[in-house]
Design a protein around this nucleic acid. Structure first.
Lengths: 214, 214
DNA sequence: AAAATTATATTTGTATACATTTTTAGGTGC
DNA sequence: GCACCTAAAAATGTATACAAATATAATTTT
């Protein structure tokens, strides 16, 4: 009955709080403060801070504390570029292994994504679930985990994206297109559409971030 | 006068010990044992184990302890593929920014790599320094850090590679070729040579691992 | 004898306490 | 008024102690 360690749920909570701007960029967070704030001791807080540093959410500022990393256009572009190269790759490995069950699950996720009133992080999570659902079939743990890590880092940008810019409709159209060619088993087209899907979203975001630095 | 935290030097030590097979695959390591073995308390040990899990060196086995991950052909291939896509990319960004000082440093590193009697981990470290030295010039922290992470994961394979197979000479020849076209500023050739450099090493390693699973 | 169950031992996660380092504020000299 | 030095405060890293969960071994039951 696997009972999550405290630090794990704390980590999710903390990420959510960052997405909701509860720890604004520029404020230095101290372990002691946070431990009182979240009602636990410093140890699990420290674990979470280390983990989120490794994932690129936070930045250590000597002993002054840790700070939420500012969103910046270069990082957004880098993440997008890496995804443009790696996701079509893993999709190609996944294609021959896609069962009807997996396709079905993917379709269900797209329907959920059309639901109104999703929170920013719910939307981001569903979006990743859709992609992950297809990629899992590739049976390539290392490749998959690296891509998952990129998505983790993207989460803040995508959240920002969806809350600032109205991109959902376009994105969903592309999702359905992708699923069509995937069903048809067309690897070349699938790669092209996926790459473009990632690039398009990125271009909008990078342009916006360049003009309006956070 | 930045004094390294204990956990950091422990981490390097531990990695080295893994490379030297002091914690064989299949043995479950307990925090308590390790803390006695390394002469520190469980907290820094725990930190190191978490970090190395995140980096893919170790694997948690419930409460039985952690185990060193076995080397496997699929992971080696995945790491190589990702490097084949991402390293030429960052090299392209780096090219216009390469100064004579950087090229000079790279040449020095290649000379060092020709030294006899280097340990496996020394060799691996110098090899990475050479690549990193060029990539740094790209000024792309996120891309660079992801690639650095891939190299971290590769370290064990490269160490294994160099100790089992005699690949150094070929590798060095390619390094010098790469440096030549980089000096000439030929981006297309540089990308091609680098991609091939990574692919060649990988092919040998993957073939060997497939025939002789660890 | 094999399977299921209980009890013990072991292991990790968390809390509290201490040590070390760095920051910051205050004072002193120029 | 600015720079430098000194001391107190505050931050993180580390050690020890405790709690919760799990794995192992022993025991019982079928």
């Amino acid at each position: 009955m696997a009972n999550k360690p405290l630090a794990q749920s704390l980590c999710e909570q903390f990420k959510q709080d960052i997405l909701e701007n509860k720890h604004p960029v520029g404020i230095t967070l101290k372990q002691t403060e946070l431990s009182q704030q979240y009602g636990v001791s410093r140890i699990p807080i420290r674990d979470v801070l280390h983990k989120l540093q490794a994932e690129g959410w936070l930045q250590q500022c000597g002993k002054r504390g840790v700070m939420v990393q500012a969103l910046n256009a270069t990082e957004a572009l880098d993440l997008s570029l890496m995804r443009q190269y790696l996701e079509p790759l893993i999709l190609t490995y996944a294609l021959p292994n896609l069962t009807k069950a997996i396709i079905g699950k993917a379709e269900d996720l797209l329907l959920e994504l059309d639901t109104d009133g999703l929170s920013v992080s719910q939307h981001g999570e569903l979006n990743w679930q859709f992609h992950a659902c297809l990629y899992q079939a590739a049976n390539r743990p290392t490749l998959f985990n690296t891509i998952a890590g990129l998505h983790q880092k993207c989460a803040r940008y995508i959240g920002y994206h969806n809350s600032q810019l109205n991109y959902n409709n376009t994105s969903q159209t592309e999702h359905y297109q992708l699923l069509e060619v995937v069903k048809a088993g067309d690897s070349v087209m699938a790669q092209a559409i996926l790459k473009r899907h990632i690039a398009v979203a990125s271009n909008i975001l990078v342009a916006y971030l360049t003009e309006n630095p956070v």
